[in-house]
Design a protein around this nucleic acid. Structure first.
Lengths: 145, 145
DNA sequence: GTCAATGCAAATCGTTTGCATGAAC
DNA sequence: GTTCATGCAAACGATTTGCATTGAC
């Protein structure tokens, strides 16, 4: 687990190293994801920014550009939750998979070392060099049953 | 594994039972998915129909409507492959997961009983009643490395 | 004849792009 | 001052909808 200031510093480092510019907007987007409980869509992030700090405006295009950039430099990760489109989470979190309630939308994160090991195994057997994986279990949660 | 005529009969049964109408279009879409090797998008199915039988026309909207319907009654399943949008496969196939090459798009299907077992376990521990799951391993395949 | 399904075109949604302007360096 | 990032609006691709017509029953 990495602290949030460390991630922001990392962003500054990457931006400088690439000869790019450090902007408030990229920091805001990253900060929101660091402090977010769950997984956010581009639109949700956009709305959060607009409602929280009404003095500074931000364009939805900038949110998308920031998200692509942050994912490219591996500070955040996107996951495609069914039809709902892409959602993002910051990489400050440990790796984990998702249990999703199809009724209320509740998401429980979990991690199973044995599954991870077996996934690597499957990949090896098929001569794939794994870069990432995505695993979601869909069902009905405790309270919704 | 279920035979393709059985699936078509199943479709006829469901349609009748729901008091709906049996149309050639729904049958065509289902048939394409039954006979398809891999996973097809709505657009790919649409193009297949247009090229194969140029006498009968079909609208893209009808393809989408047929796909939603068939998924709803559980004759086909959709999977969201990253940014490429939804793809469909018929439920005649055994359950399996996917290994996806991020370079050439090649998809390898696999099945691991131990992983399945562990998934059920995780669900039980969290009091979820699992309805389905989706698992994709992303990486670079043999020939692309 | 009734009602659902279709085909088409228009509408909508999420996302991306072009371009002039503004901000970081 | 140069160059990258931004904001806006227009463009885009995938999917959905409204509506008049067609086809299954």
């Amino acid at each position: 687990m990495i602290s949030s200031t460390e991630v922001i510093d990392e962003l500054k480092r990457i931006v400088k190293q690439k000869g790019l510019k450090y902007t408030e907007q990229r920091e805001i987007v990253l900060n929101i994801l660091i402090n977010a409980e769950g997984h956010l869509s581009a639109e949700e992030i956009y709305n959060l920014i607009k409602s929280k700090k009404r003095e500074s405006s931000i364009g939805i295009a900038t949110v998308y550009r920031a998200l692509s950039f942050l994912e490219e430099v591996n500070l955040i990760t996107s996951i495609a939750f069914g039809a709902d489109g892409k959602k993002y989470e910051s990489n400050t979190k440990e790796h984990h998979d998702h249990l999703i309630c199809t009724n209320c939308g509740k998401i429980v994160e979990f991690m199973d070392n044995e599954i991870e090991k077996r996934q690597d195994n499957v990949a090896k057997k098929n001569n794939f060099k794994i870069t990432s994986h995505s695993m979601q279990l869909y069902g009905v949660c405790d309270t919704c049953q």
